[in-house]
Simulated scan of single mutants.
Amino acid sequence: MTYSMNEGYDSYRSVDLEARAAAASPYELVLVLFDGLLDELARARGHIEARRFQQKGRSLEKCMNILNGLSSALDLDAGGQVVQDLARLYDYCIYKLSEVSVSLSLDGLDEVVGLLGTLREGWAGVHAARG
Rank of each mutant, 00 (worst) to 15 (best):
M1A: 08
S4C: 02
N6F: 13
G8C: 03
Y12S: 00
Y12Q: 05
L17H: 05
E18N: 04
R20W: 15
R20L: 14
A21E: 02
A23T: 11
S25F: 09
S25L: 11
Y27G: 00
L29I: 04
L29S: 02
V30R: 02
V30L: 13
V32M: 08
F34K: 01
D35Y: 12
L38G: 01
D39H: 07
D39W: 04
L41K: 10
A42P: 03
A44T: 12
R45A: 15
R45F: 04
H47D: 00
H47N: 07
I48D: 02
E49T: 13
E49Q: 13
G57S: 08
S59Y: 12
S59P: 11
L60P: 01
E61F: 09
E61T: 14
K62S: 05
C63H: 07
C63W: 02
M64V: 05
M64P: 03
M64I: 09
M64Q: 07
N68W: 12
S71A: 11
S71N: 14
S71H: 15
L74N: 06
L74R: 10
L76R: 13
L76G: 07
A78S: 13
Q81S: 09
Q81I: 14
V83D: 01
V83N: 03
Q84P: 00
D85I: 00
D85P: 05
A87M: 07
R88W: 12
Y90N: 03
Y90P: 02
D91V: 10
C93M: 07
I94Y: 09
Y95W: 10
E99L: 10
V100N: 05
V102T: 04
S105C: 15
S105Q: 11
L109W: 05
L109Y: 03
L109F: 11
D110Y: 01
D110M: 04
V112P: 01
V112N: 03
L116Q: 02
L119T: 00
R120F: 14
E121H: 15
E121Y: 10
E121Q: 09
W123M: 01
A124R: 08
G125Y: 11
H127V: 11
H127C: 07
H127D: 07
A128V: 09
A129H: 14
